[in-house]
Amino acid sequence: MQLLIMRHGEAGWHTLDQERELTESGRSGVAEVAARIAESPWRPKLIWSSPYVRARQTAAIVSEILNCPVEEKMFITPDDDPGECLDALIEQHESPLLIVSHMPLVGSLATLLVDAHRRGIPFMTSQAVMLDMPVVGPGCADLKAQFLP
């Protein structure tokens, strides 16, 4: 399976966490990263998005640029367990898949898949990484590429 993990774009702080919206800079950064992904050999067939507004907005921008559908997943919000996402990935058959979520989940999930622990690597806003996994499981992924705004 090929998996892209992306943190949402920069968001404002003027509302409740779940309702925070992307800034203009955030929208621009997301579009920049999506354009780089579009030029890569890892174009996703499906996007999983957190239900939070900033993640949905990020997924919508990426979806428009890459022309692929978006599904909201309730188990990829900031403090969710990366193990639950791993369980869902084992059942997933679309590849490449792009997950749009938040810190600390994106860092914990990427670290779990590459290094088999949950300490978590930092992600900048709009950053995406490409993982290649012959088998979906802890420590089974290789980091193939990074996409930065």
Rank of each mutant, 00 (worst) to 15 (best):
A59C: 03
I90L: 10
Q127D: 05
Y52A: 04
A59R: 02
Q57C: 07
L46H: 12
G137D: 03
L98D: 02
A35I: 02
L98F: 04
M103K: 04
A38Q: 11
D87M: 13
T125C: 10
E72G: 00
L148Y: 11
P82Y: 10
I121T: 15
G139W: 09
P69Y: 13
F147D: 03
W48K: 02
P44H: 09
R36G: 01
Q57V: 09
D80T: 09
E19V: 01
L148C: 07
S126W: 02
T125P: 13
G26F: 03
W13V: 09
I99Q: 01
A55I: 08
D132A: 11
A88K: 13
A35Y: 01
D79N: 14
R56A: 05
L109C: 09
C68Y: 07
L112A: 09
P104N: 10
S63E: 06
D80G: 01
R7S: 08
P122C: 00
L97W: 06
I47L: 07
A145E: 15
I37C: 04
P122E: 08
E21P: 01
N67E: 12
E91C: 05
M6W: 09
L3D: 09
P104A: 08
H14K: 11
L4R: 05
R36N: 06
H14A: 12
G26D: 07
P51E: 06
S28F: 08
L143Q: 01
V70L: 05
L89P: 07
I37E: 02
T23H: 08
W48N: 01
M6I: 11
P104D: 09
V106N: 06
L113R: 12
L22S: 03
L109G: 05
S28W: 05
A60V: 03
E72A: 10
I37D: 01
T23G: 07
P78E: 09
L112I: 12
E19G: 00
K45A: 11
S63N: 07
P134W: 04
W42R: 11
A55F: 05
L89F: 12
A116W: 14
E71I: 15
K73C: 05
T77P: 00
